[in-house]
Amino acid sequence: MFKRFLTTLAALVLATGFAHAQTKPVLTIYTYSSFAGKYGPAKTIKERFEAICNCEVNWVTAEDAGSLVGKLRLEGQSTKADVVLGLDMNQAAEAKSLKLFAPHDTQVSGLSLPIQWQDDTFVPYDWGYYAFVYNADKLPNPPKSLKELVENPNGPKVMLQDPRTSAPGLGLLLWMRKVYGDKADDAWAQLKPRIVTFTKGWSEAYGLFLKGEADMVMSYTTSPAYHETVEKKTNYKAASFSEGHYLHVELVGMTNTTKQAELAKKFMAFVLTEPFQSAIPETNWMMPAKNPPSGPPAVFKDVIQPTKSLLFTPEEVLQNRRAFIDGWLNATSR
């Protein structure tokens, strides 16, 4: 009786939520929460895609990119997702191992990505470099390289994310591996005195940095563009490191369980078109995967251009992540 009450109530809430027409086919897209939030690109993309697809787009969100894969794994074959948008490249191999994704059959060429794209399961929709962001008013001379940051005992204090729970956290772990190789753990030990803390996610770290708890924060090269465009503040800058920056690519893929295969394919193709791509820069604050003919977006004109992109393949990440994390744990717990 109690359960019936609950289900009825749940149905009621649902009914009010989906009161609007159910006549058109519905394309369900899973993404992370900030993508579909008030300031995210989801609304614009929904409008623009619905204008050409004669369908309805329904966003379903998970907390962050990490929870997306978890959610898919939990739902398994019964997932309602037609398209999954927002996976991080480092999760690609893990996501593929769920055997839930179908080949995208989309022409992927002419990308603005600094690497060649060959994957037939996922399509990149935006990208950026990880970078340390600092307040130039307080830190006039930022380190010029990751090595300088790590090895200068009087260097700036940094706010980082935990690689166990956050994508940029894992990004830095891999970045350190790329720069230091097998000596990465020693480098962590060297940096440790100047690490303020490892937060659960990017949001906490960036918030704490803005509150003045650290001199630098692990973020993206595109972060300063937000402060410049929205807040008209030019004092937040990303530090350019001479070893190169670790690449962050965000991916979209369609599921093989979808009942709207045609629609899903249509969306996959839509991702690399101008209506989608132009919605990205000033909402998601990432580089669009495909630049318009006019060149890179104006908001990113001041964004630093790393000389070299650093990247592990998804398979390498899947294989080594545990070992990297154990090494990091040991080094930073000493």
Binding site: Y32, S33, G37, K38, Y39, G40, S203, Y206, K211, W285
Partner: peptide
């Protein structure tokens, strides 16, 4: 709280 995190995730401290 969900809304709070969402805003935090897009710089809106």
């Amino acid at each position: 709280p969900y809304l709070l995190y969402e805003r935090l995730g897009v710089y809106r401290l």
